[in-house]
Design a protein around this nucleic acid. Structure first.
Lengths: 260, 260
DNA sequence: TAGTGGTCTAGACCACTGC
DNA sequence: CAGTGGTCTAGACCACTAC
């Protein structure tokens, strides 16, 4: 009986993927490094090009590499997460720094933050939003504000805020894209709605084709969705914001007391 | 000049995927329904089988369908999310119901919850855990408790809790897999550490190959990771738990006051 | 223009499922 | 056993990038 070496049961595509992944993990292929081309891989492994291609698509679905048409396949650069939490709504931070937590976080990474209000409209609220605001989705109307958040002109977050028209009235919230010093929460305070509590419902999923395009999400990167509700001191909800964030660039960081 | 109809610029694979996705959205293909087989699709669209296959892989990466070897490709059944938040740590809930929020949520879906402590060991803490517990990762030791959460015997969550040995001592936390009535937080209370504050750091990513296997995550489904830290009334951290959850089955639901 | 990834063809054999 | 998905081959042409 001779000891035979364990035959490699893995499919060739899987083996190529494992080798490349190991090279990335070992640091031989660093961020932004180019992988061997599909034709090179198929030569060195003695497979058809489609098999090498399959290997790369495994790594893509794991979010490890990005293909660029005509250029090559590159190890994805990992930025540190933009960490957002309840401090987003803190009055003290708002007054002390004059900067939003988003700007602080992005600047700290050496990237250039930019935020843009792309539209302010009046609409019927989506069902889940109407529910959080205790509105009748069939008859009520809300002001819809669409905000985009960029780092180095790359879109990283989208936030859509819904405000009952009864509350927004004809204030700047309903009419202006630019809201002046302090964030939108300073304006809510002006209207008599200082934010006292929040609810944040967090989920994760793969982007739809549409979102992929709008947020420019590379394949293999999930979306974090946060449905945020703001309450005043009397526990009345006065605004809902749906955040849609690139999962590879954003994280959440909450700290809270345990109430009984 | 004759008006020619707009030619369909989409690649064939994309077109097949779009058609199938539309059928799913319209409800023609319901949850658990079988898609036409790859060979059928290639016949009806007049393409090679690989092209039909490519179409299905698009839907897979979007998390819409699951392939089952030898059986077919099926529309993924969407369970409502198991929604967990700070109530997980509430003493009142713990005492009133005797049930953990996880069990309540899963039961409400008509599924059978089960939790299992798979191991209790003593180890060096991972770097991020040591940091949260203010421990020296090189010299300190922690008790590591590995808990699995199931719905209908399907693994949906993994929670790994780290407790400094100085705190766990030789209590049941360090020695027993079963912790008795109330949750682990009742035992912390016994030791003089009633939980007063929590920090939850949330991120999302695609599973590694290892996690895919252990949590049985279908392709196209992200992982939600929560790094949880528990603090006592004096603000001292006494435990860290890393939750790893299937993104298609779990969500988070936090409510908290805005502190200044 | 050369080299890259993107799409596609028309086959083949294997592994698994269900009857 | 027939039918399904999983893997693979050896080509082809297209679209994009860089020089």
């Amino acid at each position: 009986m001779t000891e035979r070496p364990e035959p490699d049961k893995r499919p060739a595509s899987r083996r190529i993927a494992d080798d490349l992944r190991a090279a990335i993990d070992r640091g031989e292929l660093r961020a932004d490094a180019r992988l061997p081309s599909e034709r090179e891989l198929s030569m060195t492994y003695g497979t058809a090009r489609n098999t090498a291609r399959e290997a790369i698509s495994i790594l893509q679905s794991e979010g490890l590499v990005v293909a660029q048409h005509g250029r090559g396949v590159f190890v994805r650069k990992r930025w540190p997460l933009i960490r957002l939490g309840a401090s987003r709504y803190s009055r003290r931070l708002r007054q002390e720094t004059g900067l939003s937590p988003f700007r602080i976080e992005v600047s700290r990474q050496g990237r250039a933050p930019r935020t843009e209000c792309r539209s302010v409209t009046r609409e019927r609220p989506p069902l889940d939003v109407a529910d959080r605001l205790s509105l009748d989705p069939a008859t009520s109307e809300v002001v819809r504000r669409e905000n985009w958040y960029y780092a180095d002109e790359e879109p990283v977050q989208l936030g859509v805020t819904y405000i009952p028209v009864d509350i927004a009235g004809d204030s700047v919230l309903a009419t202006e894209k630019t809201l002046g010093t302090g964030s939108i929460y300073a304006r809510f305070e002006d209207l008599g709605y200082p934010i006292a509590r929040i609810r944040e419902e967090v989920s994760a999923r793969m982007p739809s084709t549409d979102e992929s395009a709008r947020l420019a999400v590379p394949p293999g990167v999930p979306i974090i969705e946060v449905l945020h509700t703001g309450y005043d001191a009397e526990g009345r909800p006065f605004e809902v914001t749906r955040f849609t964030m690139r999962g590879d660039l954003n994280g959440l960081d909450y700290e809270m007391p345990i109430e009984d």
